[in-house]
């Protein structure tokens, strides 16, 4: 459903993405890991239309999407969250999500009240019902991460891209978040591509892992195989190519 082919992106002298290729199939749940600065967020920016790649091809839902603006890619059914959460701070929590219900699809809801009802159901799914009427700026980090997810879900995605939905959470919150992501994946029948630093949690959640290091895919496959791959271990130990590990 998502096909990333040989995508390159340079920022000045930094090669953030170096011929990155990967695919995500319908309903799949894939973990994307890699050390700081590996290019994970940049890849998300490219996939969601915020950053134009220097080269490569990108297909989603059967069409080329390079050059499409972010809102059009959203309409095709690709939703993302932001590593640095981006709530509409002055709007209520429910309205944050209602925006997604109203504009996330071409054939989306047109009635504000209906959109709020739909938003409330999604807030229920991510366990934020209790704070639905608060302004978004009143939420703590864990709640903001959940709000990001609810707003992304509101756009009716077929692929949900989560950028570090779990970083900065306490241990108890982590377990709840894993539970929530699994539940979302199961109940809404969508594919999930999730960036995560906590390898233990990703391995628990994702049957397949893709590893990025210095902008290159260094491993892609079943989780058990990938976590034993010496290049992956090397990447996490900080060796340049992992060859010496």
């Amino acid at each position: 459903m998502l096909e990333v082919v040989q995508i390159c992106k340079r920022f000045g002298g930094v090669t953030a993405l170096d011929r990155v290729s990967l695919t995500v199939a319908e309903g799949e749940i894939v973990g994307l890991i890699g050390p700081n600065g590996a290019g994970k967020t940049t890849l998300f920016h490219v996939i969601s239309g915020f950053v134009r790649p220097d080269g490569g091809r990108l297909r989603f839902a059967g069409r080329e999407v390079i050059g499409l603006p972010p809102h059009r890619i959203c309409h095709l059914g690709l939703a993302r969250t932001f590593q640095i959460v981006q709530p509409f701070t002055q709007m209520s929590v429910v309205d944050n999500v209602a925006v997604g219900c109203l504009f996330g699809r071409r054939d989306g809801r047109t009635d504000v009240r209906q959109a709020r009802d739909a938003a409330l159901r999604l807030l229920d799914l991510v366990e934020l019902t209790g704070v639905s009427t608060l302004p978004a700026h009143a939420l703590n980090l864990s709640e903001r991460k959940r709000l990001e997810i609810a707003r992304a879900l509101a756009t009716g995605p077929r692929l949900l891209c989560l950028d570090e939905a779990m970083s900065g959470l306490t241990t108890a919150e982590l377990d709840r978040m894993v539970h929530t992501i699994r539940r979302v994946h199961a109940e809404l029948h969508l594919a999930v591509l999730m960036v995560e630093h906590n390898v233990r949690l990703v391995t628990r959640t994702c049957p397949r892992l893709v590893v990025l290091n210095y902008g290159q895919v260094v491993a892609d496959g079943p989780t058990e195989t990938v976590v034993r791959d010496p290049r992956v271990v090397g990447a996490y130990l900080g060796t340049r190519s992992g060859a010496g590990a």
Partner: peptide, 19 residues
């Protein structure tokens, strides 16, 4: 709602499908 969302956060608004 779209106008408020765009004012509050253009990035997030675009990601939520707002033109």
């Amino acid at each position: 709602m779209a106008m408020t969302a765009v004012r509050e956060n253009e990035l997030a608004a675009a990601a939520a499908g707002v033109d």
